[in-house]
Design a protein around this nucleic acid. Structure first.
Lengths: 129, 129
DNA sequence: GTTATTGCAAACAATTTGCACCCAC
DNA sequence: GTGGGTGCAAATTGTTTGCAATAAC
């Protein structure tokens, strides 16, 4: 857990994730890194696992069960439509302050959070009922 | 999408989920229902899928990738330790009011949200560093 | 009687593991 | 030179699909 140096794979994974504007899947991540260096898919998963445990990378899960990873500092959240499955990014995080105040009332050390709203987007809610 | 009646399976799934205090996996759910009626695992997944789309059931994903389902009205949240993997339930939902106010500023119809904090629990943060 | 729902088993896909090889120090 | 990091391919797991049988109305 107390790891000072990042391995080659971990560095590559973190770097590519930090360049993305949106969370991406492990498979996509693998493709992107392969453009620059020889790397196996398993190594990508292993690096992601370590980075997650270090609190540097987080992931969210789409309605289809796919995991999408992003660098923690990005702190992006989504509203996802249960009907069409589209995810709409939110421009702000409603928990910014709350997380800080929670740090004080609890002995748990918070690295990051996941937050996602589910419901119906405007078009779907107009049609479906 | 516009479904008035619930099927036998859907009823069973929802009922069992409402009886649980904590989210459970689809496999556990299947075992529990099988005690009372003949049901296939696939049917459980199918029922969960419909109920999720109806906004009656939601799920969260553990660090190990397992999906745990619960009835939406329960609105339970967790703090999960990245080191030992344990999840600690939170007694309140910090978004109670916020979700309502969000309904007004956005055209998205919110059914429910997922929220989870990740970091280190007290024991792990004492040891690990 | 007709249509949607179900159970089963086979198929699928993402992820994890075992192991020999390679690189960094 | 040694130990951890890595690639590859095989194994594993949770989930989904096809289809004939069944239940609901």
């Amino acid at each position: 857990m107390t790891q000072v140096h990042c391995t080659r794979a971990q560095t590559a994974v973190l770097q590519v994730l930090q360049q993305q504007h949106e969370p991406i899947s492990a498979q996509e991540l693998h493709k992107l890194i392969k453009q620059h260096q020889r790397i196996g898919l398993a190594t990508v998963y292993r690096a992601l696992d370590v980075l997650k445990r270090m609190g540097k990378v987080q992931h969210r899960v789409t309605l289809t069960g796919e995991k999408l990873y992003n660098a923690v500092e990005q702190d992006r959240h989504y509203m996802t439509c249960l009907d069409c499955g589209q995810s709409f990014p939110m421009n702000t995080c409603p928990l910014k302050g709350l997380e800080l105040s929670l740090q004080h009332t609890s002995s748990f050390t918070i690295y990051y959070h996941t937050l996602e709203f589910f419901g119906l987007c405007e078009p779907c809610s107009a049609q479906g009922g």
